[in-house]
Simulated assay, not measured.
Amino acid sequence: MVDASSVPQTGIIRPQDGAQTLKRSSIYLRISLDHTGEGLAVERQRADCERIARERGWKIVATYTDNSISASDKANVRPDYDRMVRDYSNGRFDAVICWDLDRLTRQPRQLEDWIDAATEPGLLLVTANGEADLSTDGGRLFARIKASVARAEVERARQSAAQRQRAAMGRPPRGVRPTWVARGSNCISASSSRTPLRRSSG
């Protein structure tokens, strides 16, 4: 048995294999922003995940919920996610049910931890939308592409916010220096004008 205190937050240690006919499953629920604080979205996720467990005859041994916590920023602490990782490492369950793969994680490094855990017989990971099957090459490829796209969307959003901030401050966008901005200039003067393009008459 793995000592829970020795398990890093970002890693997943495979528990010792044991002969089991009844899958012990966990459910992970998460939404990035709960506008009302009523937890309605995670309750809808819970209903779908519990239905999957019933259909497969799995016993739910734990439910983990991180309500109104984003998974896009790796600096964010998700208490129940970290607890789930420790519980899996201690052999408490051998299946994870979540509504969608991006509810579980949006971090490529964390995804690789789950892929490692599911590559060999042991962990089963099931999503309510039926898209994730980390036991197959195609499923792992799909999961990696989805995580990469999600990461790119976050980075684009941050860059757009930074550009809007620079525009509000009267500063040119980062990147290639516009030809009408003097070298070394940090701001665009309101009185500055661009040289108009003129077509040659000859």
Rank of each mutant, 00 (worst) to 15 (best):
R174K: 13
T195N: 10
V181C: 00
R171E: 15
P196C: 03
R166L: 05
A182L: 08
S200N: 12
Q165P: 09
Q165A: 15
R177M: 04
T195L: 05
W180T: 00
T195M: 07
R174L: 09
Q159Y: 08
Q159T: 14
R158I: 08
R171F: 06
M169W: 14
A161L: 15
R174F: 03
G175T: 02
P172D: 00
A157Q: 14
A168E: 14
P173K: 05
A168F: 09
L197M: 07
R171W: 09
R194H: 09
R199K: 14
Q159A: 14
E153Y: 08
N186T: 12
L197R: 13
R198C: 06
R166S: 01
G175P: 03
S193M: 06
G175Y: 02
A157M: 12
E155G: 08
C187A: 13
A152M: 11
G170K: 07
S185I: 02
C187Y: 12
V176K: 15
P196Q: 05
R156Q: 14
S160V: 14
E155I: 10
R198H: 08
R166W: 01
Q165I: 12
A161E: 10
G170N: 07
P172V: 02
A152D: 11
S192K: 05
A162Y: 00
S200E: 11
R183T: 04
S189F: 00
S200Q: 13
V176G: 04
A157G: 10
G170I: 01
P172R: 00
S191D: 14
R156G: 06
V176M: 07
R198W: 07
R171C: 11
S193P: 04
R164T: 00
V176D: 01
E155R: 12
P196M: 03
G170T: 05
N186Y: 09
T179G: 02
S200A: 11
R166T: 03
A168N: 13
A167Y: 10
